[in-house]
């Protein structure tokens, strides 16, 4: 226990070194963080800190957490649904004693008590092993990093990017066409491609990102090997595409737009697949399936590796 505590850095000192003021709301947030379980979201911290310091706002919580992340006191990871979660960053610096703001805050109403408390502020009541050691969110982050391209691959990739750009006559007007080609080749739009295209065509990266995020066809995150596409057109909707979608989500355990953690399947909906007579229809690996029952879906997904 003591060891774990020692791993923590002195928040107070760090903040002081960075010339960051320790205001009461911040104290409330920090002590809530130290009190909370291993992995936490800003919202959870907000709920806890409100109890300690009722005037606090959610924006302050977000800001403070961001600040703490910037000074490397917190690590950020992502949950399956894409929401950020945080944990205390492991660090070799020593834990300082002055960090128990909780008591201090409690006695805000009573000045005398507050003074007394300040003198006798003890070691932080932190138990980071209190609940679930859920490191997998942070692994997902690493998984994403793995998908980032390596230098050698990047070099060989550039000639390929050049070829596509050349095919579209080096023209800014054909930017969307190039992105479609890249999306088809990579199954997503890797960062390096966008950077390179931007530089090559002299188009600001913001413009490329605005295009890539506007059209539904483009993905800024890697997609699964197999695409499961459910038609959500009107004709399929009236014939029950929602229950088909529900079946698929309950089997694959992902929501529309999501990808399974092993990058095997991605689930999406489209406005119309153009075969309304078959509705509700699903496209999997380029083939159409008309209202497949749960059993067939399970078999289909299991047999695809």
């Amino acid at each position: 226990m003591q060891n774990v505590k020692k791993q923590f850095i002195s928040v107070g000192r760090s903040l002081k070194e960075k010339q960051i003021k320790l205001t009461n709301p911040r104290k409330a947030i920090i002590s809530s963080i130290l009190e909370s379980k291993n992995i936490f979201t800003p919202e959870e911290i907000f709920i806890k800190s409100v109890k300690l310091y009722p005037d606090i706002g959610i924006a302050t919580v977000y800001r403070t957490i961001k600040l703490l992340e910037e000074i490397k006191l917190l690590d950020r990871g992502y949950r399956d649904d894409g929401k950020p979660v945080y944990k205390l960053a492991p660090s070799s610096q020593k834990l300082k004693e002055e960090l128990n703001f909780k008591e201090e805050l409690k006695s805000l109403e009573n000045r005398k008590a507050r003074k007394r408390q300040k003198k006798t502020a003890g070691i932080l009541p932190v138990d980071i092993n209190s609940e679930g050691n859920d490191d997998r969110y942070f692994e997902v982050k690493n998984e994403n990093l793995k998908k980032e391209i390596k230098l050698e691959e990047l070099v060989s990739d550039i000639s390929n990017i050049d070829r596509v750009i050349l095919k579209h006559e080096n023209s800014k007007g054909n930017l969307i066409q190039m992105l479609i080609d890249f999306q088809q080749q990579y199954n997503w739009l890797p960062k390096h491609v966008l950077f390179y295209v931007g530089k090559k065509l002299d188009v600001p990266l913001t413009q490329i990102y605005s295009i890539a995020s506007f059209y539904t066809f483009f993905n800024l995150e890697p997609k699964g090997k197999y695409q499961v596409v459910v038609c959500a057109g009107t004709a399929c909707h009236v014939r029950g595409s929602m229950s088909l979608l529900q079946r698929i989500t309950s089997i694959l355990k992902i929501k529309p737009g999501g990808t399974t953690p092993d990058y095997r399947f991605s689930l999406d909906t489209v406005n119309c697949l153009g075969c309304c007579a078959l509705g509700p229809v699903m496209m999997f690996d380029g083939k159409y399936y008309s209202n497949p029952p749960a059993r067939q879906l399970e078999k289909l997904f299991e047999s695809s590796n």
Binding site: T234, N271, G274
Partner: peptide, 10 residues
């Protein structure tokens, strides 16, 4: 042709 439930142009 983006209308859901329409595939004439296609």
């Amino acid at each position: 042709e983006g209308d859901p439930g329409a595939f004439m142009d296609r």
